[in-house]
Design a protein around this nucleic acid. Structure first.
Length: 139
DNA sequence: GCCAACGTTGGC
DNA sequence: GCCAACGTTGGC
């Protein structure tokens, strides 16, 4: 099994589950996803994969980096067996957040799934995009 | 298997 | 709070 992608972006509404909630918990289970594309992305994840944690609705920005600790586990909120979940832990908060506005304004990031499939809650990030955003956030 | 209706997401 | 985008459901 070859690794296709190691970088991801996961969206959460901060008033439901924020970066601080993840930090407080130490490890979070990402469940309740009811979108096939998002689920397929989650199934492709492997422990050790890096994830941008993104706040939707409020803030609308990437706030931190998390790491997948367990992948392809059954969704505890699902009784049909169709859906999957992953577990992740916080790695670190970005030195400064990177807003959607910035991402939209930057031609280097125009192809991000975040923009082209903006309703997708779990999307892939290319290594080049990952590096670029890290550079924006931390120089 | 098509497609209209419906529901949800998420930016503004 | 509104509305556009788009994924899912269900009737046929």
């Amino acid at each position: 099994m070859t690794k296709i992608n190691s970088y991801w972006l996961m969206k959460s509404e901060p008033d439901v589950y924020s970066w601080d909630d993840l930090v407080a918990e130490g490890e979070g289970t990402w469940d309740g996803v009811r979108n096939y594309t998002a689920r397929n992305n989650m199934r492709a994840m492997q422990p050790g994969d890096q994830v941008f944690f993104y706040h939707s609705n409020i803030g609308v920005e990437i706030v931190g980096i998390a790491e997948i600790t367990e992948s392809n586990i059954p969704d505890p909120t699902d009784d049909t067996g169709r859906w999957s979940a992953v577990k992740l832990k916080p790695v670190r908060k970005l030195k400064r957040t990177v807003t959607l506005k910035e991402i939209k304004a930057d031609p280097a990031l125009a192809d991000m799934d975040l923009l082209t499939k903006f309703r997708l809650s779990v999307s892939g990030v290319k290594p080049s995009e990952w590096d670029y955003i890290l550079k924006l956030a931390e120089g």
